[in-house]
């Protein structure tokens, strides 16, 4: 029998379990480390052309000083790359849970408590929190390899999960 039973007036007093805590010992569908890395690589590849274009068309060496110099194209391509990355990783991923890379690999970023998307601001803060994953000898990025919920430090700080779609 399902619990709470249908028509139970006190049913609303029992909050749903946090996302990822499946009942009856079923395995939670957390995304694997490999698919998370793959999604990040795809997201990076989406902005890599802007960096290459900036380097090719926007940078040169000052003939007088011999130091690197940059023209307007350099900053234009960098800004374009930032806009594309922001749209993909913060705006779109915050609203839907899926950046282009996560969509390609069928994984999704969710709020641990609600099971819903974390919003653009949340996605931005989570990417900022990845700095801590790097500061700890990059161990934070490896933490999903052995963590019960396959979370990085950024996931734990921001209360987020990455799950299979």
């Amino acid at each position: 029998m399902a619990y709470p039973p249908p028509g139970d007036p006190y049913a609303s007093q029992f909050p749903p379990p946090p996302y990822g805590q499946s009942p009856y010992g079923q395995p939670a569908p957390y995304a694997g480390w490999g698919s998370r890395v793959g999604a990040y690589l795809i997201d990076s590849l989406c902005v890599a052309p802007f960096g290459i274009l900036a380097a090719v068309f926007g940078s040169s060496v000052d003939p007088a000083t011999g130091l690197p110099s940059f023209n307007a194209s350099y900053f234009l391509f960098l800004i374009l790359g930032f806009v594309v990355a922001g749209y993909n990783r913060w705006f779109q991923a915050g609203r839907t849970g899926q950046s282009w890379g996560r969509k390609a690999l069928n994984i999704r970023l969710l709020n641990e408590a609600t099971g819903g998307p974390i919003g653009a601001g949340g996605a931005f803060v989570r990417d900022l929190a990845h700095i801590l994953d790097g500061l700890s000898c990059y161990i934070g990025f490896l933490w999903p390899l052995w963590d019960d919920k396959k979370q990085t430090f950024a996931d734990k700080i921001c209360n987020t999960l990455v799950v299979r779609s």
């Binding site: 700095i131 790097g134 500061l135 700890s136 000898c137 990059y138 161990i139």
Partner: peptide
């Protein structure tokens, strides 16, 4: 680069 060493000058266990 080791971010900890870059920021603090102290190496980390994974250096």
């Amino acid at each position: 680069p080791c971010l900890l060493r870059t920021v603090t000058g102290v190496p980390c266990p994974a250096c």
